[in-house]
Simulated scan of single mutants.
Amino acid sequence: MTITTATFTFQPYSPHCHITWDEGDHVLIGVSPGNSYFNARRIAELTRWAAAHFTAVDFVYADLHVAEMFAALGHTDDHAARRAAKELKAVRRRILAGVEAAAPHGLTVHVRALSEFSGNPVYQLLHRRVQHFLATDEEFRKSCDAMVEHFLGARLPGGLPMTARQRSACLAYIAAELPFFLDTPGILDVPSSVSCYHHLMPLTELLYAKGGGLRAARNQAYAVVRPESVGRTADDDRRAA
């Protein structure tokens, strides 16, 4: 089922994700550094959209392993560190500007870096579980490899093959984000949560499948949220309920 608001189309991944959306407890909006999609105007629009339905809103931007990614893509370590610092400063500034412009009445919107949760015991446990399953579960590792291909494919010049260093850096970047796709309620101590992004994550099908293995918590949902004017893709339609 696709739910259209005034500005955004919201596609819960499954019927259970739809139920979690209806509960309206909390929404987590993940923001990637260096992604032009997340300009201040878009952040403001997302803030207004989220404030209209959810009791609590968090923006979390990825700031772990960003320098390692730039280094793996060919920058010197010094240049990679400077570029990462510049991009992270810029993305935080854009998020804060967008949230301030939206100024949702009576709602606190948190803006946090992923690294701020490094000492969170639930985040630490989930991250250890991710690392364990990467090392021991072939199906999970293949799904993560698909995410690596998706993430790095457009960033490699001239269709060059991916190096072991690039794959390792990207896996570390993804593994740092995954706890919030598994159990945001546990990390942030909220009743339930919907993690949102503007694309369907390749790992989603596995995390919300029945059976054993690494799975999202029951009160964790995932949804694709995109501007209403942007058309749906086949990947977005697949498995959307």
Rank of each mutant, 00 (worst) to 15 (best):
D77E: 14
P121M: 09
V57T: 06
H65R: 02
A217W: 00
R238H: 12
M69S: 14
P161E: 14
I43P: 00
I43F: 04
L152G: 06
P104W: 05
V91R: 09
A164T: 11
G212M: 06
P227L: 06
F59Q: 04
R155H: 14
L207K: 01
V60T: 00
C17P: 00
R48C: 04
V122G: 04
R218Y: 14
P12G: 10
R42Y: 05
D237F: 10
V130N: 02
M69N: 09
I174T: 00
V148I: 13
L46K: 07
F59I: 02
D145K: 02
A71T: 07
A103I: 02
M147P: 00
A146M: 12
A241I: 09
V31H: 01
L200N: 07
H18M: 04
D25F: 04
Y61F: 15
D183A: 12
R226D: 12
E205D: 14
D236Y: 02
H75G: 10
A84D: 06
H150E: 11
A240R: 13
N39T: 04
I95V: 11
E45R: 10
H105Y: 07
A51Y: 02
D58P: 00
R128V: 01
I95E: 08
C196N: 03
T108Q: 10
S36H: 11
V60N: 03
T55K: 14
G24W: 05
A101V: 01
S118K: 12
A175E: 14
A217S: 12
I3F: 09
A52E: 13
L200M: 12
L88Y: 04
K86M: 15
P202D: 07
D183P: 11
R226N: 10
T20H: 05
E68A: 15
T55L: 11
V148S: 10
L64A: 11
F117K: 04
R48N: 02
P33C: 04
H127A: 12
R83W: 14
E100V: 01
N219P: 03
R93D: 02
A51M: 05
H18A: 15
C17F: 02
G186C: 09
R165S: 08
L126G: 01
F70P: 04
L214I: 07
A169M: 13
T136C: 12
T108V: 11
A40M: 07
G158Y: 05
R238E: 13
I19L: 14
L96P: 06
G106L: 05
S36W: 08
L46P: 03
G158N: 14
I19N: 13
P104M: 10
H75N: 15
A113R: 13
G211R: 03
L156T: 03
V60G: 03
E205P: 03
S195G: 11
L134I: 08
T4Q: 15
S229I: 10
A85I: 10
R155V: 08
E228V: 12
L207M: 08
R238G: 13
E116I: 01
F140A: 08
L88D: 00
T163K: 08
T2W: 11
A169T: 07
A223M: 05
H26S: 09
V109R: 04
R93W: 05
H26W: 01
G74R: 04
G212P: 08
